[in-house]
C-alpha cells in the first residue's frame, strides 16, 4: 500500500485478494502475453481472459471492428484456441505472473459451458470464472442465455455444481429486467456479477448499403456506453449483495471512481486497452491520486458512495 502514498488500494472480493480494484476486461487484453510487452501486468488487480470455448473457434468473417462516435463496434465471434491449448499455454503463464485470473467461459451449449468451467476449475490455478452469457456476436449460446432467465439460472447452477472456484456472471445491457435477472443469478449460485458486456449495435455503409461488420451486427463498447454501464451497476448494486465488477467504457480513473461510487467493488478497463496498452496502470495511479487528494484511505470507502449520499472526505 505504501507504493501509493499511504492509500490502501487493496480489495478482497469472493475471497480473492486484489492489490488494487482495476482489472482488464475480457476480450481486450488477450491472455496477457501480448500486453506484457507493454506493461508489467503483475501490477494489475486482475486479468479477465479472452473467452475460452471447448473447441477452437475461428471467429467471425471480417470486417470485425468499426469505429463509431466515442465507441467501437466489434463482432469478433469468440475467436480463441480452445480449452486444451488455453490450459496448456495461457493459464499457466498467467498464473506464473501472480495476478488473479478470471477465466471468461463461453459456449455454444450449456454442456460446453459446464465442461470448460469444470476443467478450468480442476486446473487449480484460476482465481474465478466469468460466465459469458452476454456475447452478442455468436448465434448460439452467448446472449441467448441473457434472454431467458430460467435457462441462465439452470446454467449457473450447473456450472456451480461442477466447480470449486467463485463464479461471476457477466450481464448484458440487453436484459429486460436487469435487477430481477441479477438477483436470479445470485439465487442460482453466482458468487459475483460483472457488467456490462457490449450493447448489441449496428452500422451501415450507406454508399454500398452494406453493414460495416462481416457479422452484420456487433457490440458497442467504449465511452459511448459508459453512462449506460454506470446506471446499470447502480441498479444491480441495489439488488444484490455479492461483489460487482463494473465495466463499460471506462476511459480513465474518473470513470473508474464513478463506477465504484455507484456500487462496483472493482472495475475492469476494456476498450481503452486498444487505444493505450498501458492504460490500466494509469487508472490505478489515478485512483490512488484521487484518494490521496480527497483523504480516502481504503477503496471500500468509495464503494456505493453515490447512494450513501456523501461527497466529502471520509470521516
Amino acid at each position: 500500500m505504501d507504493a501509493h502514498g499511504g492509500v490502501d488500494l487493496r480489495v478482497e472480493i469472493s475471497g480473492i485478494s486484489l492489490q488494487n480494484p482495476v482489472l482488464a476486461c475480457s476480450g481486450t487484453f488477450g491472455n496477457g502475453r501480448e500486453m506484457s510487452a507493454w506493461m508489467d501486468i503483475r501490477r494489475l488487480g486482475g486479468v479477465m481472459t479472452k473467452a475460452v470455448t471447448l473447441d477452437p473457434c475461428a471467429g467471425n468473417p471480417p470486417p470485425r471492428v468499426w469505429e463509431t462516435p466515442s465507441g467501437m463496434l466489434n463482432a469478433i465471434g469468440l475467436e480463441n484456441k480452445g480449452l486444451e491449448r488455453f490450459l496448456e499455454e495461457d493459464l499457466p503463464w498467467l498464473h506464473d505472473m501472480g495476478v488473479p485470473v478470471w477465466v471468461n467461459v463461453a459456449g455454444f451449449t450449456a454442456a460446453e459451458y459446464v465442461e470448460v468451467a469444470r476443467e478450468v476449475s480442476r486446473a487449480k490455478i484460476a482465481s474465478a470464472l466469468e460466465l459469458n452469457i452476454s456475447c452478442p456476436n455468436v448465434k448460439k449460446g452467448g446472449l441467448h442465455f441473457s434472454a431467458d432467465e430460467s435457462e441462465a439460472e439452470r446454467l449457473v447452477s450447473a456450472v456451480k455444481g461442477a466447480v470449486d472456484i467463485p463464479v461471476y456472471v457477466k450481464l448484458s445491457p440487453r436484459t429486460g429486467d436487469l435487477r430481477g435477472f441479477a438477483g436470479a443469478m445470485v439465487r442460482a449460485g453466482a458468487d459475483g456479477i460483472s457488467l456490462i458486456n457490449t450493447m448489441p449495435a449496428m452500422a451501415v455503409d450507406v454508399e454500398t448499403a452494406r453493414p460495416r461488420l462481416g457479422n452484420l451486427t456487433g457490440g458497442l463498447s467504449g465511452p459511448a456506453i459508459h453512462p449506460v454501464a454506470v446506471q446499470m451497476v447502480w441498479e444491480v448494486a441495489q439488488e444484490v449483495d455479492v461483489p460487482i465488477i463494473g465495466m463499460g467504457g471506462i476511459w480513465g480513473w474518473r470513470d473508474a471512481v464513478e463506477m465504484l461510487m455507484v456500487g462496483a467493488d472493482a472495475v475492469a478497463v476494456g476498450t481503452l486497452n486498444f487505444t493505450d496498452p498501458t492504460a490500466t496502470l494509469g487508472v490505478v495511479e489515478g485512483i490512488a491520486a484521487f484518494m490521496r487528494r480527497k483523504g480516502y484511505r481504503r477503496v471500500g470507502e468509495l464503494v456505493d458512495l453515490a447512494r450513501r449520499g456523501r461527497s466529502g472526505a471520509a470521516g
Binding site: E34, G59, P63, R64, I76, E79, F274
Partner: peptide
C-alpha cells in the same frame, strides 16, 4: 490493409483468412 483496433494482437479485430488450418484467421 485491414481495419484494426488494438494493433498489438489482443482484440483479434483485423482478421485475415489463412490457408492453415482451414477456416482460420
Amino acid at each position: 490493409e485491414e481495419r484494426m483496433a488494438c494493433g498489438v494482437g489482443v482484440c483479434r479485430g483485423c482478421a485475415v483468412p489463412v490457408a492453415e488450418p482451414p477456416g482460420a484467421y
